[in-house]
Design a binder for these strands. Structure first.
Length: 323
DNA sequence: AACTCATACAACCGCCGGGCA
DNA sequence: CTGCCCGGCGGTTGTATGAGT
């Protein structure tokens, strides 16, 4: 007996999502939270399969997504992590807040792979390609790859000294892992070895992002979130103000960057790892909710309070892990 | 201006593993 | 223990866009 398809494919729409579909999905998730994805399309009035909805939300609609090309620093992190754990894009993505596995995977395939090859590094093994000519470029490569990092290290006064690409130790670890697993060790052993490989990352990156990992995002209780425009008697309600700083008013849970990190993020440097800035978020949100491309950004702020209330999460939404 | 090719990225597909009855 | 459901993951494909001729 064959496996049941994830959804009834007859009559379901495929291909690029329209603004209207995005709108419906966005509104549904923001109103009801993430629940059984299979039921989402029906409930949201979409002719899509649940899987497609999930993908769309995770890879495109999630408000906490970061946009634009990966910075050099993020790229470096991806390379480091790939060297440690291979094509485990979701794991890699979990170390880069605001980035999705799909995005990283695409970026790897389109940019980083080529870059590494050009630099004489095998993108699969992260070892120098066996070509004398390429050896000459190794030092340059190392310099180039480390440059942005070193630059940032100076700024951040942190040490990121573990570079698996050029650390023989890394390959030793890898070999060790292979050996242990090939001996017929249990999954537990494998997991332990993996942990050993991954652990040093936190020792180093910890200083950079203050130990942040999306796997370890502290759970924020619903009551801890202040949502503007939800009818409230609070005198501190920011609803009444006509401030244009929507995000400030929204007080969404934010990532806690280290002070050092924040200081870097404040630069207008391309290497920054910052989430959407207010404008990006507003434009996107406005577009999604109103079908407006942001030409009249004011619309969001002038919207009636009931419109903001779409953003209000009940406890259930949070229980489902929205955001 | 029209065409071709390359590139980037969104979306799909099939498989896997965890949870549950 | 078994089978099913569901979410998640990684590989692959499809499509839009830009660059080059």
């Amino acid at each position: 007996m064959g496996r049941q398809p994830c959804c009834d494919k007859v009559g379901l729409k495929k291909g690029p999502w329209t603004a209207d579909e995005d709108n419906k999905l966005m509104n549904f998730i923001l109103t009801n939270g993430q629940c059984c994805w299979r039921a989402v399309p029906k409930l949201a009035g979409l002719l899509r399969c649940g899987k497609s909805c999930r993908l769309r939300w995770i890879n495109y609609l999630r408000p906490d997504l970061k946009r634009g090309l990966l910075s050099e620093y993020e790229e470096k992190m991806v390379i480091d992590l790939h060297a440690k754990i291979g094509n485990r894009w979701s794991k890699i993505a979990s170390h880069l807040p605001g980035r999705t596995d799909n995005e990283i995977k695409n970026h790897w395939n389109t940019h980083i792979k080529k870059k590494l090859k050009k630099m004489g590094i095998d993108p699969v093994t992260h070892k120098p390609l066996s070509n004398n000519a390429t050896h000459q470029t190794q030092d340059q490569t190392k310099q180039q790859l480390n440059q942005p990092l070193e630059k940032e290290q100076e700024n951040q006064q942190v040490s990121v000294d573990f570079d698996p690409i050029f650390e023989p130790e890394f390959n030793q670890n890898k070999e060790l892992k292979k050996q242990e697993t090939s001996i017929g060790s249990s999954n537990i052993t494998e997991a332990k070895v993996e942990d050993n490989i991954i652990t040093p990352l936190f020792d180093t990156m910890e200083d950079v992002i203050n130990g942040f990992c999306t796997d370890e995002v502290p759970i924020i209780e619903p009551h801890e979130i202040l949502v503007p425009c939800v009818p409230s008697t609070s005198s501190t309600s920011t609803c009444s103000s006509n401030s244009t700083n929507f995000l400030e008013e929204l007080q969404l849970p934010d990532f806690e960057w280290s002070c050092n990190y924040n200081s870097v993020s404040n630069n207008n440097d391309a290497n920054n790892m910052e989430l959407w800035d207010d404008d990006d978020f507003i434009i996107s949100l406005n577009f999604l909710i109103n079908g407006d491309d942001g030409g009249d950004r004011k619309q969001v702020f002038d919207a009636p309070h009931s419109q903001y209330s779409k953003m209000a999460m009940d406890s259930e939404s949070w229980a489902y892990g929205l955001f």
